[in-house]
Simulated assay, not measured.
Amino acid sequence: MTAATTPADDIGELRQRLARLDTAALSDALDSLHAPPCVLPGIRPRTPGTVACGPAFTVRYRPLDHDTRGFRNAADYIDEVPAGSVVVVDNGGSTTCTNWGSLLSTVALHRGLSGTVVHGSVRDVTESRAAGYPLFSTGVTMVSGKNRVVLDRTGASVDVGGTTIDPGDWIVADDNGALRVPAALAGEVLRRAEAVDRTEARIRAAVLDGSRLDAARARFGYARPWEDGGRDDGR
């Protein structure tokens, strides 16, 4: 089921469990499924130590026709974003102007959004960090998007460096970067990523208890950690 058709309680549980995992475990799980490209290339954390996790609300910009007269706001869409969503903004990775600032972070926090990923630039990072808002982007600049870009549309598929994101796909971003979990695979990716976490925890515990790393990896199924294999019987 997609996020749009999954019951709210199930979405809440899925979000809580996904948010407890790091993107490394999720990436391993996606690899095991031979999923299409899911990493969002070039996306970096602007509020270190935070996690964005939720269904994607997609936003696409286009350059403003410079012959246009009068003031043109960059966009007004934030009031339509459902709580718990991750806003995914596509401005083609441009570093020439911003698509997110502190005012949007304030509104997003107030509305209960889970975070923002910008394929482009953001500004006012000090304020977003102070507020603890999960913010990720390609670049940072002080230059406003006003009178430079306009909203193309919301709710459409966007391309972030070759990775297609459809509305409702799950986005998880942390200090490692950002990735997409296709909505149709979210449940299976979660199951496998949790198994990866358990496998690595067992290997770590065994090494700290005196085991050789190669022996611990062999014992607990490091080659296929999503299968949750190996032995806990001490042999």
Rank of each mutant, 00 (worst) to 15 (best):
A218M: 08
L40I: 08
D169L: 02
P48M: 12
A183P: 05
T50F: 02
G12M: 05
R129W: 00
A3W: 15
S137R: 09
M142L: 10
V107M: 03
R231G: 11
D209M: 07
T116N: 01
R192L: 14
R202A: 07
R224C: 00
V39G: 07
A216Q: 05
T116V: 15
G221T: 10
G84W: 11
A173E: 03
L64D: 15
G70F: 11
D76Q: 06
A29M: 09
A195W: 03
V81Q: 07
N91L: 13
V172N: 04
A24Y: 14
T5Y: 10
V118C: 08
G177I: 04
V189P: 06
Y61R: 14
M142R: 13
R17M: 08
P82Q: 10
D159A: 01
A215F: 07
A130R: 14
S114D: 10
D67Q: 12
L33H: 07
L213A: 14
A25D: 10
T154A: 02
P48H: 06
T47G: 01
V196C: 12
T68H: 06
N99Y: 03
M1I: 13
A35S: 15
R148D: 00
T68N: 11
G42E: 08
M1W: 14
G70E: 09
R72P: 00
V59G: 01
E194F: 01
A178M: 11
D214A: 14
W170T: 13
T58M: 01
R111M: 05
A218Q: 11
L64K: 07
I43W: 14
C53N: 13
E188F: 05
V189L: 04
A206S: 10
G139Y: 04
F136P: 02
W226F: 05
R204H: 04
V107W: 12
V107Y: 07
L64C: 06
L185I: 05
G177W: 11
R191M: 07
R69E: 14
D65M: 04
R212D: 15
R198W: 02
I171L: 07
D233G: 01
R153H: 08
E227P: 00
L185M: 09
R44V: 09
H110S: 12
P45T: 09
S102L: 10
T2I: 10
R62S: 01
A19L: 00
R72D: 00
L213V: 15
V117A: 03
G115I: 12
C53I: 12
D166Y: 13
I78G: 02
R198E: 13
L113W: 11
